[in-house]
């Protein structure tokens, strides 16, 4: 299974950095997400997770370090987290860490809402933006 690496950019749109590693099971989504076509960008990530969780079935660590994402992206993040929850329910080992600016109360509430929506335990890891 191929790894996915997409280098993030901050130009006409904000493309997040994606590092999905099939050998280590470590997946990282970081940066900012404001895309011209959100579905086109996230569908391959959804498919990758579906393939990993049905064929590779090794322990996974999913790291989210997004400082900004728009509401279109928020739906796609829900899709990703739902796959991880299904994997966990089927016996898969999964750790989800979500890093967020300690002063960003809205982001903190967003993460809490994702936990309620998915039933997935998400480790909320605040950071100091100046040190990030």
């Amino acid at each position: 299974m191929e790894n996915i690496y997409i280098e993030g950019s901050h130009t006409n749109f904000f493309v997040p950095t994606v590092e999905f590693n099939a050998e280590t099971g470590v997946c990282v989504l970081s940066g900012e997400s404001f895309l011209e076509d959100t579905i086109e960008f996230y569908d391959p990530l959804v498919q990758w997770l579906e393939e990993y969780t049905s064929e590779i079935k090794k322990p996974m660590t999913f790291e989210i370090k997004l400082t900004y994402f728009n509401t279109s992206t928020s739906r796609s993040i829900l899709d990703l987290l739902n796959i991880l929850k299904e994997y966990e329910d089927d016996g898969g080992e999964i750790i989800v860490n979500w890093h967020y600016d300690e002063d960003d109360i809205d982001m903190e509430e967003d993460i809490e809402d994702y936990m309620l929506d998915t039933g997935l335990e998400i480790n909320m890891i605040p950071f100091d933006e100046d040190e990030f």
Binding site: N70, R75, D117
Partner: peptide
């Protein structure tokens, strides 16, 4: 917050619906 969650997981609503955006704006 509850309304946002309801709308976000409703697959009958388009992912880029302006309604979800307005809920996020108000929040």
């Amino acid at each position: 917050r509850e309304y946002k969650r309801e709308v976000r997981k409703d697959n009958t609503i388009k992912k880029d619906s302006p309604n979800i955006g307005l809920i996020a704006v108000a929040l």
